[in-house]
Nucleic acid binder design. Sequence first.
DNA 1: CTGAAAGCGCTTACAG
DNA 2: CTGAAAGCGCTTACAG
Lengths: 340, 340
Amino acid sequence: MKKNISMKDIAQRLGVSTALVSYVLNGQLEDRINKDTAQKIKNLADELGYRPNHVAKSLKINKTLTIGLILADISNPFSANLARIIEDEAKKHKYTVIFGSADESADKSEDLIRTFMSRRADGFIIAAPEGSEELLSSLKKQDIPFVLIDRYFPELQVNTVTINNFQASAEATNHLLEQGFSEIGMINLKADLFHLAERSRGYKAALTQAGQKDEGKNLKEVDEKNMIKEVHQAINELLNQPEPIQAIFFGNNNLAIEGLIHIRSLNIRIPEDLAIVCFDESNAYNLFYCPVTYIRQPLAKLGQAAVKLLIESIGNQERSTNNITLEAELIIQKSSQKYI
Amino acid sequence: MKKNISMKDIAQRLGVSTALVSYVLNGQLEDRINKDTAQKIKNLADELGYRPNHVAKSLKINKTLTIGLILADISNPFSANLARIIEDEAKKHKYTVIFGSADESADKSEDLIRTFMSRRADGFIIAAPEGSEELLSSLKKQDIPFVLIDRYFPELQVNTVTINNFQASAEATNHLLEQGFSEIGMINLKADLFHLAERSRGYKAALTQAGQKDEGKNLKEVDEKNMIKEVHQAINELLNQPEPIQAIFFGNNNLAIEGLIHIRSLNIRIPEDLAIVCFDESNAYNLFYCPVTYIRQPLAKLGQAAVKLLIESIGNQERSTNNITLEAELIIQKSSQKYI
DNA sequence: CTGAAAGCGCTTACAG
DNA sequence: CTGAAAGCGCTTACAG
């Protein structure tokens, strides 16, 4: 193993102090350092292939320029896309990101945060799983900078960057109503997560506003653990009830994909027999025979806002709290058009 | 800001040395430390909420337990899936991963490696872009542990974990030949990357072995930058030549998705009019009307082997070189069956 | 069984 | 314009 060369090595060879080397290599105090000395130091550093030791620097300055990113699952496209945005935005500010997948488990999430804390991440961006309120409160109490992304807990006063799930759902439902559909079903995930509940609430609010009475009757909430089976069952129920459904709104892309597979297997034509709207994009929609209407989340803005907010929060002493809400966009395609 | 509490704090409160605190909290020298003292130290650590400072430890032991992961693009499902496997495997060995997307650029890849080196990653797992041979040689010369994943450079003697692209392509082509198709086209990416060239080579070798003469005549290599347009064009050419094509083999999933979209728009039926095989999986296949035959890469094994190899390499003094080749699996579905 | 001490590679007041 | 020195929070021979 070749020894890594340090500032001290450079200083000794040149007969100067490490302080001077540090100032020069960091471009500090430039106006009051002898140009010649500075140049010599730079040259030797180049020549020896000096690489700063960020670990030592971190220890000294008590900052690592590291962001801990806690996602649901990096292999999920939503998480992966967000990760990419966050990576790019972090890099602009010289931050590096360490990531972990919490798999919707509060325990795993806590483990990850603990690990990243011992590695002295400067702050966290967290897609928080159900049941992590306590952990988040404790982080806040410890004055650890973090921002929640995607999910949030209305009772917690912490930094958040989320989309307006209520509004997006209402808009999607209104679009279907405007197309002339009145019997509109929704298939959503059964979970206590607020952002999912907001989607159901937006759907119901739109129906109520349109004068419908029993606005929850066509809402099916399925268990994630048994998702495929329950989606199929929910679709069957919606189709076979006294007043059969004219349109289905899926609460996320995974539900939509399973739903569309099932619908095709039933030989139900879209949009002739049934209209479809989905929350979230998926490149899978591209291979479906009918272009799919979906709600597009502003992922780039979400990720960028989260990084920006986090970095501000790291820099500030007083912990003010910021809640950023972004609007999603309804991309209207053929699957939701009234077939005449 | 609350001050982080350190081993020194614990030692002072208890009137012992930090050495002792270190031994106890790390479970070292257990047999020769007074049980009472040990217990007191542990209790106080708990009580004060002591969190080890991994940065200080890293500086001292000159190891960070960090893996630098260089991917093509974390937002791409192939990269993201790999990242998840690597995350899990790394965690088992107490490693944390920092990642970056190189976007197939040798320069970005170098930047990332430089950054991660100054952060003293113990080693790297790299999906290397075209043109990074020099960088990799230089890493090797500096004795920096790394393993290449997915891509590799046959002229470089370095650790690699790859699949047998030649064999997988040959198998896919043979499958089509066995189904009775003789006019088989392939659409692949035009690139110098060895793993892509191997896919073309496997395809051609299978045709040659089947007695075909001009085995390159139905191979179309498209430019990634102009991918969509060139895929459409390639398909048109293959369909409109004197002996029209009976089957198309796509060199990766992105090519396949664009190809399938185009094929559907031409009202060509699969598998009645045209058989299809694709390299790589995609959840998009799920929404295509015909189940798609594809080559499944053993992602889990790839990632696990890479981490294992890297960690061995970090631990070893002598830099032996290891090349692991895994076999892919052909998942045969309806899209490649001869329609009778 | 335990402590004093050196040192990992930096940064940064302070002094001159 | 530059250097001596302290210190970030650990680990680890060494000594007793």
